[in-house]
C-alpha cells in the first residue's frame, strides 16, 4: 500500500465524516425504537471507521494508538491467552468476590435492620468507605493471601460490600408505613413482612447496588493485579504487554474487559427488568437514563 498523503487522508476523513454525520442526524431525528438502537450503533461504526482511516493514513505510531484492525488481529492471535486471563480475573477473582461481597453486604443490611443504633453507626462509616480508594488494600491482601486469585477476590469482596450494605439499608426503608401497617393488620411476623413486602420493595435498590458492584468488581480485580499477579490475568496482561510496548495486545485485553463489563451490566439490567417490572422506573415512558 502506497503511503497516502496526510492531506488526502484528512480530506477523505472529513468528507466521509460530515456526510455520515448529516445522515445520522436525519436518522436521530426520526422517532421510534429502530432509530434509537441504530443511531448509537452507526455512530460507533463511524468512529471506528474514522479511527482506522486516520491512524493508518496519518501513520500514527502504534505506541500512541493502534488501528482497530490491528487490535482485532491481536485479539485473534492472543485469544487463548486472553481466555485464560478472563478465567483468572473474572471467574476466579471478580465473580466470587462480587457474590460474596454483595451477599455479605445485603445480609449485614438485614442484620442491622432492627437496630437503628447500628444503622446510624454503620451508615456514616459506609459512606466514608465509598469515598476512599479501597483498591489500595490490594498490596495488603497480596501479603496476606499471596499473588493468586484469592487476594484479588478479597479486594473485590471489600469493594463490593459497602454499596450492597448501603443500598440494602436504604431499600428496606422503601416500604411505606401504610403498607407495613397492612401487613401488621394481617398479623404477619417480622420475617413474613420482610420477605413478602420489604425485600421486594427493596429490589430496585439492590439491583442498583449489583450494577454498581459489577463494574467495581471488574475494576478492583484488574487494578489489584497491577500490584502483582501470577503470569496471567487481564490486569497482568495489560501491565506486562505495556512493558513490551505491544499496545495492540493491551487494547485487545481492554476490549475484552469492556465486553465483560458491559455484558454483565446488560445481564443485570435484563434481570432487573424481569424482577422489578412493576416499578415506575421500568414502565414505558420513564426516564431511560436512570
Amino acid at each position: 500500500m502506497s503511503p497516502a498523503t496526510p492531506l488526502a487522508v484528512l480530506a477523505l476523513a472529513a468528507t466521509v465524516g460530515i456526510a455520515a454525520l448529516m445522515a445520522l442526524t436525519r436518522l436521530a431525528n426520526r422517532p421510534g425504537r429502530a432509530a434509537a438502537i441504530l443511531t448509537p450503533m452507526l455512530f460507533a461504526v463511524l468512529v471506528l471507521f474514522l479511527w482506522e482511516v486516520l491512524t493508518r493514513g496519518l501513520a500514527v505510531p502504534q505506541v500512541l494508538l493502534p488501528a482497530p484492525s490491528v487490535i482485532a488481529r491481536a485479539f485473534w492471535n492472543a485469544s487463548p491467552e486472553l481466555l485464560q486471563d478472563v478465567r483468572q480475573t473474572v471467574l476466579f477473582a471478580a465473580i466470587p468476590g462480587f457474590v460474596c461481597g454483595s451477599a455479605l453486604g445485603m445480609v449485614t443490611g438485614i442484620a442491622v435492620d432492627r437496630s437503628p443504633f447500628l444503622q446510624q453507626g454503620l451508615l456514616p462509616l459506609s459512606s466514608f468507605a465509598s469515598v476512599i480508594p479501597i483498591v489500595g488494600v490490594a498490596p495488603i491482601m497480596i501479603l496476606w493471601f499471596g499473588f493468586g486469585w484469592q487476594s484479588k477476590a478479597a479486594v473485590v469482596l471489600l469493594i463490593t460490600f459497602f454499596p450492597a450494605f448501603v443500598n440494602m439499608v436504604a431499600g428496606l426503608r422503601e416500604a411505606s408505613p401504610i403498607e407495613r401497617d397492612l401487613m401488621a393488620s394481617y398479623a404477619s411476623t417480622y420475617w413474613q413482612t420482610l420477605w413478602k413486602l420489604r425485600l421486594p420493595a427493596a429490589l430496585p435498590f439492590l439491583f442498583t447496588a449489583l450494577k454498581v458492584n459489577a463494574s467495581l468488581a471488574l475494576i478492583g480485580a484488574i487494578v489489584a493485579e497491577f500490584f502483582g499477579a501470577p503470569v496471567y490475568g487481564l490486569g497482568f496482561r495489560i501491565s506486562a504487554e505495556i512493558g513490551h510496548l505491544a499496545l495492540d495486545r493491551v487494547w485487545a485485553a481492554i476490549a475484552v474487559a469492556a465486553a465483560v463489563g458491559s455484558g454483565s451490566y446488560a445481564l443485570l439490567t435484563a434481570a432487573e427488568r424481569a424482577a422489578t417490572f412493576w416499578h415506575p422506573s421500568q414502565l414505558p415512558g420513564s426516564d431511560r437514563n436512570s
Partner: peptide, 22 residues
C-alpha cells in the same frame, strides 16, 4: 443525544481504569 449518550452510559460498566498504564 441518541448516538453518543448510550455509549457514555455503557462506558460506566467498562473498567476505564484498566487503560491507565496505556
Amino acid at each position: 443525544d441518541r448516538g453518543l449518550l448510550p455509549w457514555v452510559i455503557v462506558s460506566q460498566s467498562i473498567p476505564v481504569l484498566a487503560t491507565a498504564p496505556m
